[in-house]
């Protein structure tokens, strides 16, 4: 649905040229929620703005719903933008219009007549759960309510794609969750395709089907979350399971075991102790719901090293568990 190919963008700033996008390619399938995560300054904002050409790339292609946006004239681009809704971190609502008025703005711009505007605005405010505040001005609404208006405005012209530019970053955690829930609900009900950018892994974890990690304008890693978490050495997976750094005094072999789907409730530790006779200690663990499924990662320390430990690891791997060896004791110590 969204296809970005080989995007390059360089800004010439006061302190020299800044490479905001460096050969970025992303494919977002229909009805998917795709998250791009990265530090501030990684190029996320530039990336999401190329999708509706608020920012024009220096080179590369941008296609939404099979339509090449860079080839469109001004009028064609405006029409294409009616099919691409966008929500913003700071909501960007008109202070002089009510919630309903802000939603109707989108419809006025799209050339919808007065009666239909009124009907559609009511309908969409109802969908985002804000019918009771339709006549309130933004100054009278909470952050979460403002973002609901922002979402309603973005959805008013029946777009196929929703772009979310840090939509939950200005909100408290509880409100963030309710807004993310809302985005997932509208994806399910309206069959939208969602591209979002965020600096919070929690957002990726909660609603995304796929994710990409952006660093200094480059995509470091991307894929479906279900695949990412079972990919050895995945940076995204490491960020999804926040395990602490190794303590300095570990003496044995340290392994990270990732459980996903069916293996999540397997008695691995008991098995290691019983079958292989190891007294394992747990250094850390994280259980997360990722892409709607339970998944977890446990960091274990197995005393010693050598063939017995290798056999135990091989045994775990044969059970379809992702086992990554994080630390092996040096020869001198063993």
């Amino acid at each position: 649905m969204i296809s970005l190919q080989h995007l390059h963008k360089t800004f010439s700033g006061a302190s020299g040229a800044v490479r905001a996008l460096d050969d970025v390619s992303i494919e977002v399938a229909e009805r998917q929620i795709f998250g791009v995560v990265g530090q501030s300054g990684a190029g996320k904002s530039t990336l999401i703005r190329t999708v509706n050409l608020l920012e024009r790339p220096d080179s590369g292609t941008v296609a939404v719903d099979g339509r090449d946006l860079l080839g469109l004239d001004a009028q064609g681009l405006r029409a294409a933008r009616h099919d691409i809704g966008m929500v913003f971190q700071q909501f960007n609502l008109l202070q002089g219009r009510t919630a309903r008025g802000n939603v109707e703005l989108a419809l006025e711009i799209a050339g919808v007549d007065r009666v239909e505007r009124r009907r559609r605005a009511g309908e969409i405010l109802d969908l985002v759960g804000l019918s009771s505040r339709a006549d309130s001005y933004p100054a009278q609404l909470s952050g979460g309510q403002k973002q609901r208006v922002g979402i309603a405005r973005a959805l008013a012209s029946n777009p196929k794609v929703l772009l979310s530019d840090e939509a939950t970053s200005a909100l408290d955690p509880e409100t963030m969750r309710s807004i993310l829930e809302l985005i997932r609900t509208i994806r399910d009900e309206l069959g939208l395709t969602v591209l979002l950018i965020t600096h919070e892994m929690d957002v990726i974890k909660r609603i995304c089907d796929s994710a990409a990690l952006l660093e200094s304008g480059r995509i470091v890693e991307q894929g479906r979350l279900a695949d990412v978490i079972t990919t050895p050495g995945s940076r995204l997976a490491a960020d999804l399971f926040p395990l602490h750094d190794l303590p300095p005094d570990v003496s044995g072999t340290v392994v990270d075991i990732t459980f996903s789907g069916g293996s999540a409730d397997r008695p691995v530790i008991a098995q290691l102790a019983r079958t292989h006779g190891f007294d394992v200690s747990i250094l850390g663990a994280a259980i997360e719901t990722i892409a709607g499924k339970q998944a977890g990662r446990t960091r274990l320390e197995i005393p010693g090293s050598g063939t017995a430990v290798d056999a135990a690891i091989a045994d775990l791997r044969s059970q379809d568990l992702l086992v990554e060896v994080i630390h092996t004791p040096s020869r001198a110590a063993s």
Binding site: N52, M86, Q90, N92, A154
Partner: peptide
């Protein structure tokens, strides 16, 4: 941001 929002809506 308001100008950006209007642009994203396809405003002339």
């Amino acid at each position: 941001g308001l100008i950006e929002a209007a642009d994203s809506l396809g405003a002339t």
